[in-house]
Amino acid sequence: MDAYEQKALSELASWIKKVNKKSGKFERVSKQVQLKVNSYIPSRVHKVISESIRSMVGAVLSGSKYISKEKNVMLLSLQQKEEWVKEKVTSHRRTAVIEGVGTGAAGLLVGMVDFPLLLSIKMKLLFEISRLYGFDPNEYEERLFILHVFQMAFSSEKKKMETLRVIQEWNRGNHPEINWQDFQQEYRDYIDVVKMFQLVPGFGAAVGAYANHHLLGQLGETAINCYRIRLLSSKE
């Protein structure tokens, strides 16, 4: 294991510790407030989110939408792979910010368009990250892993810990299917509060830019650590 891999392993250990850390009082109160706010979000917004997620899960599992060719990375070191991965995260973050500003500035009707667009940006990023780490999303198991990474990034504390265990067991052949109903509920509960403010005309532009920048950054960090688990577990 080279110096970069040792550093990555240390960062991974810190990330896993953070995921497994029980939330404090502030986080629990925030969750209660979030659930209350969710009840005020228009039902048509919930419907758009649910349908977008259902379509996205179907597209990922069928491999019908996000497959693309990437550079040959088989001979690259982990450091070289992750330099490219971080470039991809930065690029998609920039795209998501521009998209968030545009849809957030328009209010409710156009703002709802942000949900499927942002999902598409996130999934495209995950497919590209998968290839950059040397995995092939043409394979069903890899597409399934991508959905677990997504769920790891945007779910409740309890679900994050459950999904982490799945990811840690992945190399041993444990590949559970995704329940899309649970998947979409976790995602909705995670992002609804911020996204509700994005639907406010004018004010929503700033919120949309910040939210999309934050969400893409979180997805990138989660993906990096999930793939590190698979690549570094055999080197410990």
Rank of each mutant, 00 (worst) to 15 (best):
H214S: 15
T163P: 02
K22V: 13
L216C: 04
M1W: 06
N38Y: 04
A105V: 07
A209C: 07
K47T: 13
W170S: 05
V194P: 10
L144C: 01
G208S: 02
N212M: 10
E221L: 06
R188F: 12
Q151Y: 07
Q80P: 06
V37Q: 10
R94P: 08
T222C: 08
S30L: 04
D192H: 12
S52F: 02
Y66H: 11
G173Q: 09
K71P: 01
I121Q: 12
V60F: 06
K69C: 10
S62L: 09
R165I: 06
L231S: 04
V19G: 00
K22R: 13
L119Y: 10
Q79I: 05
V113T: 04
G208C: 09
E87L: 11
V57K: 04
Y40A: 14
G24C: 02
V33F: 14
V73N: 03
F197A: 12
F203N: 04
I146H: 08
I129E: 00
A96N: 06
E221C: 03
L109S: 05
L12A: 01
G173E: 11
N174D: 07
T95P: 07
V85H: 04
S156Q: 00
I191W: 11
K86C: 02
Q218Y: 06
K122A: 13
V19P: 11
D189N: 12
S50E: 14
I53R: 10
M112P: 00
Y66A: 08
I98T: 12
Y4S: 05
V207E: 01
H148Y: 09
I178T: 02
M123V: 00
Q181C: 07
K69N: 12
L75R: 12
A223R: 00
L232D: 05
V89C: 05
F197Q: 06
E5W: 01
D189E: 14
Y227I: 01
H175Q: 14
E5A: 00
A105N: 04
F154Y: 07
V45N: 06
R230K: 15
V48C: 03
D182K: 05
L76F: 09
Q80H: 07
L76M: 11
I53S: 01
H213P: 05
Q151T: 03
V207W: 03
L109P: 02
V19S: 03
V194W: 12
T163F: 05
N179Y: 04
P176M: 03
V101D: 03
G100E: 07
E139T: 07
E236N: 13
T222N: 01
K18W: 14
F203E: 00
D136V: 05
V48D: 06
R28T: 09
I53M: 15
E83V: 10
L108I: 06
E70R: 08
Y133C: 09
G173H: 08
A206W: 10
A106T: 12
C226E: 00
H148D: 07
I41C: 07
E186H: 02
S120P: 09
K235D: 07
E128S: 08
E139L: 14
A96V: 10
S120M: 14
Y210T: 04
G202E: 00
S43R: 09
